[in-house]
């Protein structure tokens, strides 16, 4: 009881441990797997990423030269990054921000 009483009094003068989200952005670690991004021009639309994706979040169409990911279905595992032959996939350190509408990230070559 006394330990917590001491802590409670000390906490009054300490800066708070929580942040004012969403006005203050969340800090993310170095090389964190935040959101999937594509370095477009390198992509050859081979479709390996789509096959490796365990969450079936990536759609690739070779004929239309179209690459598309659903960031809300993506589980940030990085399986697609591992298999990409052109190394054009990668992760941003920032997390996908809260949004009012779901929309896919698309790339057309």
């Amino acid at each position: 009881m006394l330990t917590m009483l001491k802590n409670a009094i000390l906490n009054l003068v300490k800066p708070s441990a929580t942040i004012n989200y969403p006005f203050t952005p969340i800090p993310s670690a170095k090389e964190a797997r935040g959101a999937l991004k594509i370095d477009g021009p390198l992509c050859i639309f081979c479709g390996l990423c789509s096959k490796a994706c365990p969450a079936q979040a990536i759609q690739v169409s070779r004929a239309d030269k179209h690459w598309e990911v659903d960031p809300y279905q993506c589980v940030n595992c990085g399986a697609c990054v591992d298999v990409c032959p052109k190394k054009c996939l990668g992760f941003e350190e920032k997390y996908t921000a809260a949004a009012q509408k779901k929309s896919n990230v698309e790339f057309n070559g």
Partner: peptide, 11 residues
């Protein structure tokens, strides 16, 4: 607010 501050939160 005071409860939050005692718990090291912003409140």
């Amino acid at each position: 607010k005071l409860t939050a501050r005692m718990q090291n939160r912003k409140g």
